[in-house]
């Protein structure tokens, strides 16, 4: 074992003390919110006037998170199946492949991404119409 005193190695860690007088890097969360950049993969939105109900999103989804359910009122005459996607956020992994394969690009991801609920069965999400 090396018993020689390592003076530099003993003193230099005390540099950390200078950090005591710096402004902290954390933010005060509920009052200050972090800006979410454009293009963040958050919740789904679906432009119902464009959605054609083709179920390409259901086909590509590897987690089988997408159900096609009947629409209440027809907003797009080209929607031949009368169905729109609903996403199970208990299974979704936000890979955004469903938005990649969407032929009319009606399915998109928005920046909003915060949702709290006490029951995991409630995480069936109907994309917002935008």
């Amino acid at each position: 074992m090396n018993t020689k005193l390592d003076i530099k190695g003993t003193i230099s860690p005390f540099n950390a003390i200078t950090k005591l007088f710096e402004h902290p890097n954390t933010i005060c969360y509920p009052s200050v919110k972090k800006e979410i950049p454009k293009g963040y993969r958050g919740f789904h939105t679906n432009t119902l006037t464009d959605c054609i109900g083709c179920a390409n999103c259901q086909d590509v989804c590897m987690n089988e998170a997408i159900d096609m359910i009947p629409i209440e009122e027809d907003k797009n005459p080209k929607n031949s199946s009368g169905c729109i996607p609903r996403i199970d956020y208990g299974r979704c992994c936000w890979c955004s492949l469903c938005t990649d394969v969407c032929p009319p690009s009606s399915l998109k991801l928005e920046e909003d991404c915060i949702w709290a609920n006490d029951n995991s069965n409630n995480f069936l999400y109907m994309p917002k119409d935008k």
Partner: peptide, 8 residues
């Protein structure tokens, strides 16, 4: 309530 789109 998932529907098969082709059937639909």
């Amino acid at each position: 309530d998932n529907r098969d789109v082709k059937v639909e």
